[in-house]
Computed example of a mutant assay.
Amino acid sequence: MVYIGAVQAVVTADEFDREPTAAELDAIDREMPVIRADIDLLDAQIITLDRTPTELDARRIRRARRRVLAARRTLANFAATRAPGVSA
């Protein structure tokens, strides 16, 4: 009878098994206004799922969409000014 031993995995940290770097945390901080605006938009849309939207609901959704667009514009403008080769 031949015994087959299990192959051991390498005991080093995997790429997905680590803490975020400072650069990754900075990127998350820069994107946080967009994330919050998206959450607000989803909240406004979820409220109207089980009922007919009122005028107040429609205004809430429009405001949330405008906040999402403004946050994305701000993030895109920031990224454009920080692009390599662009003088600030």
Rank of each mutant, 00 (worst) to 15 (best):
Arg67Cys: 01
Ala88Glu: 08
Glu31Cys: 01
Arg73Asn: 12
Leu56Met: 13
Phe16Asn: 07
Leu75Val: 11
Ala37Leu: 02
Asp29Ser: 08
Thr81His: 15
Arg73Lys: 14
Met1Ala: 14
Ala76Tyr: 07
Ala44Tyr: 00
Asp17Arg: 05
Phe16Gln: 04
Leu56Thr: 15
Ser87Pro: 07
Pro33Leu: 02
Leu42Lys: 08
Arg62Cys: 02
Gln8His: 07
Ala44Cys: 02
Leu49Val: 04
Val86Phe: 08
Pro53Cys: 06
Val34Ile: 03
Pro33Tyr: 01
Ile4Met: 15
Phe16Glu: 07
Arg72Phe: 06
Ala64Ile: 03
Ala13Leu: 12
Ser87Tyr: 13
Ala83Val: 05
Ala76Leu: 08
Ala6Ile: 10
Thr12Tyr: 07
Ala6His: 15
Gln45Asp: 04
Pro53Trp: 03
Met32Val: 04
Met32Asp: 07
Ala80Thr: 12
Ala9Leu: 13
Asn77Gly: 14
Glu15Arg: 09
Asp43Ser: 08
Arg18Asp: 04
Pro33Gly: 01
Ala79Ile: 10
Glu19Gln: 09
Arg62Leu: 12
Leu56Ile: 14
Leu25Asn: 03
Gln8Pro: 03
Asp38Cys: 10
Val11Asp: 13
Val2Leu: 13
Thr21Phe: 06
Asp14Ser: 15
Val2Glu: 12
Thr54Gly: 12
Gln8Phe: 06
Ala22Leu: 12
Glu31Leu: 03
Asp17Thr: 10
Asp38Thr: 13
Thr81Asp: 15
Pro53Ala: 05
Met32Thr: 09
Asp29Trp: 05
Ala80Phe: 08
Glu15Asp: 08
Glu24Cys: 03
Thr81Val: 11
Ala13Ile: 06
Val68Gln: 01
Thr21Lys: 01
Glu31Lys: 01
Arg51Leu: 00
Pro53His: 03
Asp29Ala: 14
Gln45Gly: 01
Leu75Ile: 10
Ile47Gln: 06
Ala9Glu: 10
Arg63Lys: 12
Thr54Tyr: 11
Ser87Leu: 11
Leu75Gln: 14
Gly5Val: 09
